[in-house]
Simulated scan of single mutants.
Amino acid sequence: MARHLSLVHAPALGPAVLDDVWPAVQAALDGDAPLAVLPAGEGPQAAARAVLAADEPLEDGADLVVVTSGSTGTPRGVLLSAGAVRASATATLDRLGGPGSWLLALPVSAVAGLQVLARSALADTTPTVLGPGDRLTDAVAAMPAGRRYTALVPIQLRRALTAEPDALRALDAVLVGGAATDPDLLTAARDAGVAVITTYGMSETAGGCVYDGVPLDGVAVRVTGHGVELAGPQLALGYRLDPVATAAAFSNDTDTDGRRWFRTQDVGTLDGVRLTVHGRLDDVVVTGGVNVSPQAVEAALRAHPAVADAVVAGRPDPEWGARVVAAVVPAPGAVPELVTLRSWVAERLGAPAAPKELHLVAAVPLLHTGKPDRRAVTRLIEGA
């Protein structure tokens, strides 16, 4: 008998998550009712509905479908089995030192928020939800006694470290992922006594599968001409109703250990078992024949006292092939200037990495996953 997806609307973070989404996720993890959580917002929700095609029979073995952010192209529905999600959650709890209670601070339509629910289910605990306007201090104080964890994106960590560092220190682990985390931010957090752990992964790996550069138990990593490749029991089955994209991203032939591999399209290096990710293959800006990493330039810009946040992209240039362009959120009371920031970046990364164009923005647009919306930033720049 054909199985079909149930679509659940993702409410704004708050008690409604426990009423509407939490029971549905538990049922999906038990293999009882295949589920997809729709993101908030009319545009993202319409795109998700089109990808999910709930009227079409669901692929064999899938129990949850997570819609990607679309940060690297058209959104896709990632087919996850309950076993893959459970394997990921179990490996995370083992790495962190055992089950505990979780603070949900991320959208449940994204895999990072969904995994907070999955880890809570495995630990047989109900997550505490951080709602809009809630103080982190109050939410952490409301968590049960014992080991306490949360997962954040870098901008949340940055804000909490400034406003409520004591609340972060009260947690046994703060997972941070979804986007590259500035080394300076990590240093500041660790110097402040926060047990922060960087995570690397994506919807196709049921969430983070490499912690502080070291793969979780059961996860295999290799670096090839396709970039970083990942294998393990947490791997997705493929993409919803898209066999072409599935074949391009997932190896059909298993290796000698019987593993399938996912091609991430991320650039990385391996030092023994430790993985360092440098950015995406398609994000690199080639300017004057020199490869420039947008993430490295963003990190350098955020370290400047006049900059609160930054996103970097490349734009066509008749002389250089592409020029580095920066969209910057000024620090309170500051007015960043191009000449100053160019010098700042050049001193740290070399002259080719220095932005040739600067745009001041009130805030960096974000996708529903919490990642910077680079396409929206590009549209802002082009409009300017």
Rank of each mutant, 00 (worst) to 15 (best):
G70R: 05
A112I: 01
S88F: 10
G133D: 13
L106C: 01
S88L: 11
V67Y: 15
S101K: 13
L130H: 04
P75H: 01
A139G: 08
A91K: 01
V67D: 15
Q115D: 14
S88N: 15
S71F: 05
G77L: 06
T125G: 12
A91G: 09
L96C: 07
P127S: 10
L104Q: 00
T137C: 11
V108R: 05
P75D: 04
Q115R: 14
G73N: 06
P127V: 09
T72K: 08
T137G: 10
A121Q: 14
D94H: 12
T72W: 09
G98F: 00
G113F: 00
A105M: 00
S81V: 04
P127G: 11
A91Q: 09
T126P: 12
T72M: 06
L117W: 08
R135S: 15
L80V: 03
T68Y: 01
T68P: 02
L130S: 03
S101T: 15
G73T: 08
Q115S: 14
L106R: 05
L117M: 13
W102R: 10
T90C: 14
V85K: 00
A139Y: 06
V108L: 00
L106K: 03
T128H: 05
A110M: 05
V111I: 15
L130T: 04
L104M: 03
P132Y: 08
V67W: 13
R119Q: 08
D134W: 06
D134L: 05
T92P: 05
A87N: 10
A123K: 09
L130A: 12
S69M: 02
A84G: 13
L93K: 06
L79S: 03
W102N: 04
G83K: 07
T72P: 05
P107R: 03
G97F: 07
L114H: 07
D138V: 02
T90D: 15
L104G: 00
S101Y: 08
T125M: 13
V85T: 07
V116S: 09
S120C: 06
D124F: 10
A110W: 06
P99L: 12
D134Q: 09
G131I: 03
S120I: 07
A105R: 01
Q115E: 15
S81Y: 01
P107Q: 06
T74K: 12
D94E: 15
L96Y: 04
T72L: 11
A121Y: 11
L96E: 04
L104N: 01
T74C: 09
T137L: 12
G83I: 03
D94R: 13
G83V: 02
S120M: 07
R95S: 14
A118T: 08
P127W: 11
G77K: 01
S120H: 04
T126M: 11
S69W: 00
V85L: 15
G131Q: 03
G97H: 05
S69D: 00
G73R: 04
L122V: 08
S120K: 02
V116G: 07
V129L: 13
L122W: 02
A91M: 11
G98V: 02
D134G: 07
S101L: 02
T74S: 13
A118Q: 03
V111M: 14
A121H: 13
G83D: 12
L114Q: 09
A82F: 10
A84C: 14
A110G: 14
G98C: 01
Q115G: 11
S71A: 14
P107Y: 06
P132L: 03
